[in-house]
């Protein structure tokens, strides 16, 4: 997986939490990358939500008299090998991509963060077992692991999301563990431990809030990776299955008609680039603003 953004340990909230959050939010909203990336992502979310209202045609309706027509006033992006409107399919395809990005990352966080918290906080045998398993999973290239898992689960969008989520999980385990290690011996954690507060309460109320910033940043960047991975799995025939619209499977079909209908291959790809760029820009902006130490880089 392409993941070149290191996230340093966040400084535990020193001042009043509410004002800290407000200033972080203000910094986020004034950063150009966050604004541009956020706008692109919100645009695609709106497109996905309102797809039935926006799409000019039924994305599944074949029209044999209108097969592989080039872009025109009626069909802005042209039609595909079954005479379906490419624009409508691109619009509906946003649903699969966004769902894959959001659900896969949510799954990766839901599995990875608790394991990372446990490994970092308890240390010892728990840490050793979790860390070795993480090392083993990280040793297998992301897409190779996702393909193997998707093949094991069977080709469908839902299974692709699970495969991508599980393949992305070790990143969150390692990130969270590292963050916990850097703050678990801070004075305020030692103090609440001294007061007899239970480990679970310390982890949930005192450690988790202070490791959230890098997790949010990593989560946003991983969404870009997850969208690309979903498109890749669909392209290979391991994701959303036709005739349901998915940008990856649309490109797989388009590949067979490159000489006759090149437009079929252009727009799904442009849509993937736009949404992935949106998540990447948003991730970069959040990285700069939520972990201010990164501004130098």
């Amino acid at each position: 997986m392409t993941n070149d953004t290191s996230t340093p340990a966040p400084t535990p909230l020193a001042g009043p939490r509410a004002s800290g959050r407000k200033s972080a939010l203000r910094r986020c909203l004034s950063h150009p990358s966050t604004i541009i990336g956020g706008t692109i992502v919100v645009f695609f979310v709106l497109v996905a939500v309102f797809a039935p209202l926006i799409a000019p045609f039924d994305p599944l309706a074949s029209n044999w008299g209108n097969v592989r027509q080039p872009p025109s006033a009626l069909h802005w992006f042209g039609t595909d090998d079954l005479g379906r409107d490419v624009l409508s399919r691109v619009i509906f395809g946003a649903r699969a991509s966004l769902a894959a990005g959001i659900i896969a990352v949510a799954l990766a966080i839901a599995l990875g963060v608790p394991l990372g918290l446990m490994a970092g906080y308890f240390g010892g045998l728990v840490d050793m077992v979790i860390s070795r398993l993480t090392d083993a999973l990280l040793a297998v290239p992301f897409l190779v692991l996702a393909i193997a898992l998707a093949a094991f689960l069977g080709p469908s969008l839902q299974n692709a999301m699970i495969a991508i989520g599980v393949a992305a999980m070790p990143i969150f385990i390692r990130l969270t563990r590292g963050q916990v290690l850097s703050i678990k011996n801070e004075d305020y954690v030692t103090a609440v431990r001294g007061l007899g507060v239970r480990d679970r309460a310390i982890i949930v109320s005192h450690i988790l809030p202070n490791v959230l910033a890098p997790i949010v940043v990593q989560g946003t960047i991983t969404m870009a990776v997850a969208v690309l991975a979903e498109a890749s799995l669909a392209f290979l025939g391991l994701g959303q299955m036709p005739p349901a619209p998915s940008w990856g499977s649309m490109l797989d079909i388009a590949r067979q008609f490159l000489t006759q209908a090149p437009w079929m291959a252009v727009w799904p790809g442009v849509a993937i680039i736009a949404i992935v760029l949106g998540f990447n820009l948003l991730g970069d902006g959040l990285n700069d603003t939520l972990t201010p130490q990164q501004e130098d880089g």
């Binding site: 690309l228 490109l251 388009a254 291959a265 680039i273 760029l277």
Partner: peptide
């Protein structure tokens, strides 16, 4: 970083 390799290949 945002371009899917298979799409770039097709193009």
């Amino acid at each position: 970083l945002s371009i899917p390799s298979f799409w770039l290949g097709i193009m």
